[in-house]
Computed example of a mutant assay.
Amino acid sequence: MNRFDRFLAIDWSGAMGERQRGIQIAYLDSQSDTGPVLLRLPDAKNWGRVVIKNLLSKLARADQRTLVGMDFCFSVPWPDEGPLPENRQQVESVEELWALVESICSGDAHYYAGPAIRNLSSDFAPYILCDRYRGPEFRFDRFRETERQLSPKPASIYHCMGAKQVGPGSFAGMRMFHTLRSVNDPRIAIWPFDPIDNANVVLCEIYPSLFYQMAGMKRAYDRATIANTLAYFHSGSPPEMSIQDEADAVISAAALRALSYNPDLFSYPPKVPVAHKEGWIFGVLPS
């Protein structure tokens, strides 16, 4: 028996502005025999980060339990000496990290996190992986433990410019998490930082490329790739899609439902001490 009634996969974006084409959401019911459905807004506009926050709050008030996968890093690498540059005051918890990101970026609307990665005076600047600010103090090997378990490893959260950038979306997501924390709604749990048994909405970090890899496929959005990957996760036919972000959301929704039957995926990662600060990618079992 699955502990969730429905599954949402959100392909995220850190782009500037109120709405982002890169944000795509796929939905799948626990009992559905059909494939995931792409969710659209009634006004036909793109999703936005504030709209997503409001959607999560609405889901928390519903009777059904929802597992929500979000495609961004929930935290940063957290060595013993602390996650920030050695000459900065360290944060002691992930909630303090989210609050710090919010304090740096609070002047920007729509949870945009540009100041956290572009301002050289910010606490993150010495670890940003980008050509513009490259220097001897920059670190190219800063990965969280959950990322070290994957091969090939995902891009680091400190990769903040150019192709495959991860930082902008992740820090934007942390701003949204800070808002959710400030509301103090026990019906919303952010895994693995919170207990999930009594939450109506459980937010977990996803990495769509991992799900393609599980199915023996390379990440792509051609119909054969999507159909074969959905079949691996015992899901139905794919909807019509035109961009990779849509495909990633669809595949992730199917994977969330299939993998959520495995209790080890929820119970084991929180036992990894650093996961309480770094977070964990859903679907990764420590080796």
Rank of each mutant, 00 (worst) to 15 (best):
Y232L: 07
P192G: 10
I251R: 03
V183Y: 13
S182I: 07
P195K: 14
L210M: 05
V250W: 01
H234E: 15
N184M: 09
H234C: 14
A189W: 04
P186Q: 05
P238I: 09
M241F: 05
N184D: 14
Y221H: 15
V202F: 04
A220Q: 14
S242E: 12
I251N: 03
A254G: 01
G236C: 13
P192E: 05
M241Y: 09
S237F: 07
S252M: 03
P208H: 01
P195H: 13
T229C: 03
N228E: 12
R223Q: 13
L210K: 00
G236W: 10
F193D: 00
D197Q: 12
D248W: 08
N184A: 13
E205T: 12
I251G: 00
C204T: 09
R181A: 13
T229E: 02
Q213A: 15
S242V: 09
N198D: 14
M217N: 08
A227Q: 12
K218T: 14
S209R: 09
N184K: 10
D185P: 02
A227F: 02
Y207L: 06
W191A: 11
A247M: 13
N198V: 06
Y212F: 15
R223I: 11
Y212L: 04
A199F: 03
V201H: 03
T179P: 00
Y221P: 01
M214G: 09
T229R: 02
F211A: 07
S237L: 08
V250M: 04
P239E: 06
G236M: 09
A255S: 08
F233Y: 05
A231Y: 07
I188R: 01
D245L: 04
V202K: 01
R223F: 05
F193N: 00
M217E: 15
F233S: 01
I190N: 01
Y212D: 02
P195L: 11
L256D: 02
V202Y: 00
A247G: 15
M214Y: 15
P238E: 11
Y207F: 15
P186M: 06
S209K: 11
L180P: 07
V250P: 02
R187M: 13
L203A: 05
R187P: 08
A199W: 03
I251M: 05
E240S: 12
Y232M: 10
A249H: 06
I190E: 01
Q213V: 06
D248V: 09
A253D: 02
A247S: 15
L210Q: 07
S242A: 09
D222W: 11
R187E: 12
E205Q: 11
Y221N: 14
A255F: 02
R187T: 14
C204A: 12
I188A: 07
I206T: 03
Q213D: 13
Q213I: 05
E240A: 13
G216L: 08
T179G: 01
M241S: 10
Y221I: 07
I196P: 00
N184R: 08
A227V: 10
A227P: 00
P208L: 03
T225E: 07
E205M: 08
V202N: 03
T225S: 10
K218A: 14
R219S: 10
S209P: 07
A231C: 09
